[in-house]
Every structure is written in structure tokens, then in C-alpha cells.
């Protein structure tokens, strides 16, 4: 067997890696041309390098499945942005008189309450729990932990306007000729005399109307708007404005502390658990098409996520596992 001379080793290593310099290339080719056996030995070593790469390429790993996990881990949403959401929320408005819930995900201020009487605006940040706020007109707001609300010390002028980042539930007093408007970075919601939920995350705003009617508009393109009534939901994102019937009955679970499932399909359960506990709960690919075969009837109040998942396991005979930051529900073999 031919020994490769020491002074050629470095050149040959780089040749294996496909990044030898032109000097190294000349050096190697000169040596190879000295004798057919030299030339053959280099060819064989190249083959060996390549074969050992194949031999080491095991076990198999599923890159596309892993990429899907990465996307949910990094909070990639349909808009094509990767942002880790601080477990965004929703806004729900519920009121017998008039209620509106607005939720906007976004930045979190470090101070709990601050105000500037000169400008007349007050900023409240819910830190360490949800926060109940009574506005100057008597309307009340439940601010979800982490959300921020800015509102004036007194409502002056023709409108009542507040700014929201994060999730909140508004219960708004009706005042004719004095519309109530909730602004987020992206949208403006006007209460027309009813109750609704708005959820603005850093990627999209969602509004859910529980009773009454609401006008929901894109801030930068006000002619992009829609009127929503009871049990309707609209989502505003980079993709545009989408209107549809309300799918979840648990959008207020953060406020009530209760998750209720009544013949709820498993994929909806997973979505509600994700929103409520601030984690990613998913169905395995093979299970997802059969989600409707597992209607869940259950109620969770103070349970931990694991306790909730354990109960689902008992109810359905399915299993779950934690993979990275995601809980995956799957069908055991």
C-alpha cells in the first residue's frame, strides 16, 4: 500500500473537502503523475472518504418534520415572520349592556402604571396577573397578564379612544354620539353597540364578537373593514382581512380560568390548550385528519397542562409526548 508523503497530506485533506488551493492542486497532480499507483491510491482514498461519509450517515433523521417543529418553536406564523409570541391573546367583549374584549399582542412595558397628567394619558400594564380597570366613562376592561392599555384620564372630544397591546376584554357602556374606539398597532375597532373580543398579536389582530355589532378596520387602509355581529370572528394580518364564524368557545378562558369542551374536536382542543397555557400543543401528522373522531367533553379549571393532557389521554386512549417545546398528541401503535 502506498503511503501518502506527509507534505501532501494537507493538500489531500483539502482535496477531500473540495477546497484545495491552486498550489495544492498542482502539488497533488504532480505527485499523481509520477506513478500510476500513486494516482490510483489517491482515487481510492477519495472513494474511501466518500464511503465513510455514507457509512456515517445514519440513523435517519426527518429534516422536514424537524423544520415544522422548529417553526412552531420559533412561533412562525402564516405571515412568514418568526417571532416568539409572548403567548398572545385575544380580546373578548362580553356584556349584557355592551361589552367588548380586545386583545393585542405586542410589547410589554416594564412599569405597571404610569401616567402623564400633562398629556392626560395613563398606561397600565398587567404584571403578575390579569388586571381589572374601570375607565372614566364607567366601562370596564379586563387586561390579560402582560397586556398594556393606554387611556386618557378623561374622555374628551367626539370619541372615546384607548390603545391596546396584548389581550383584553372590554365591557363598554353605550353612549350615543360618543363612539368607543380601540386602537392597536394595526387596527381600529369601533363599538357600534354590542360586545366583542379583539385579539391583536404582533402578527395579526383578531376580533370576536359575542353580542351586538362592531366595526373592525385596518388602520393603514381604513377602507379595508368589516362589520361583525354575534359569533363572528375576523382576523387582520399581512394576508388581509378574513371573516369567519367563531370556532372556539374558550377565548375568554384566560379571564374566567375555565376551559370547557363540549363535543369539541381534538384539533380545536389542542388550539385552545395552546392559547390557554401558552405552549404549543399539536396533533401528530397521522392523527390530525382524524381529529373529529375524538370529541372531547371535559372541563378544566385549576389543572396543570400535564393534568389536562393526562385526562385527554384517559378519555381517548391516545398518548402524548413532549418534544422540544411542543407537546404532541399521537396514536399509539
Amino acid at each position: 500500500m502506498i503511503e501518502i508523503p506527509e507534505h501532501l497530506r494537507g493538500a489531500l485533506e483539502n482535496h477531500f473537502l473540495g477546497r484545495e488551493s491552486s498550489e495544492e492542486k498542482t502539488l497533488l497532480e504532480t505527485w499523481r503523475s509520477l506513478h500510476p499507483e500513486y494516482d490510483e491510491e489517491v482515487t481510492r482514498l477519495m472513494q474511501l472518504w466518500s464511503d465513510s461519509g455514507d457509512a456515517l450517515a445514519q440513523p435517519e433523521f426527518d429534516t422536514s418534520e424537524a423544520w415544522r417543529e422548529m417553526e412552531s418553536r420559533l412561533g412562525k406564523k402564516r405571515t412568514g415572520l418568526w417571532v416568539r409570541l409572548p403567548l398572545a391573546g385575544r380580546i373578548a367583549i362580553a356584556a349584557t349592556m355592551i361589552g367588548a374584549l380586545v386583545m393585542v399582542g405586542g410589547r410589554i412595558f416594564s412599569d405597571r402604571t404610569s401616567g402623564d397628567t400633562a398629556t392626560g394619558w395613563r398606561t397600565v400594564v398587567a404584571v403578575g396577573g390579569n388586571e381589572k380597570i374601570t375607565l372614566p366613562d364607567g366601562s370596564t376592561v379586563s387586561l390579560r397578564n402582560g397586556a398594556t392599555l393606554q387611556y386618557p384620564y378623561t374622555f374628551e372630544g367626539s370619541e372615546r379612544k384607548v390603545m391596546l397591546a396584548g389581550e383584553a376584554f372590554f365591557d363598554i357602556r353605550p353612549e350615543k354620539n360618543h363612539p368607543f374606539r380601540i386602537g392597536t398597532v394595526r387596527s381600529i375597532t369601533e363599538v357600534l353597540g354590542t360586545s366583542f373580543l379583539v385579539n391583536a398579536s404582533s402578527l395579526s389582530d383578531t376580533i370576536i364578537v359575542t353580542t351586538g355589532r362592531v366595526l373592525f378596520a385596518d388602520k393603514s387602509q381604513p377602507d379595508r373593514n368589516c362589520i361583525l355581529s354575534e359569533k363572528q370572528e375576523a382576523i387582520l394580518s399581512e394576508k388581509g382581512l378574513e371573516k369567519k364564524p367563531v370556532t372556539s368557545s374558550n377565548y375568554l378562558s384566560w379571564e374566567t380560568g375555565r376551559l370547557v369542551f363540549r363535543q369539541t374536536p381534538l384539533d380545536q382542543v389542542a388550539a385552545d390548550l395552546s392559547a390557554h397555557y401558552g405552549v404549543f400543543v399539536q396533533l401528530a401528522d397521522t392523527l390530525a385528519p382524524k381529529a373529529g373522531m375524538y370529541p372531547i367533553n371535559s372541563e378544566f379549571t385549576s389543572q396543570s397542562l400535564e393534568q389536562a393532557l393526562d385526562e385527554i389521554r384517559v378519555l381517548t386512549g391516545l398518548q402524548y409526548k413532549k418534544k422540544a417545546a411542543t407537546f404532541i398528541i399521537y396514536q399509539p401503535n
Binding site: 445514519q58 435517519e60 433523521f61 424537524a66
Partner: peptide, 11 residues
């Protein structure tokens, strides 16, 4: 980078 190197890194 992920698509190219995920499997080799796991291996």
C-alpha cells in the same frame, strides 16, 4: 443551513 445540516448534525 437547517435543511442542509440538520440530519448530519443529528448523526
Amino acid at each position: 443551513v437547517f435543511e442542509e445540516l440538520y440530519a448530519p448534525l443529528c448523526q
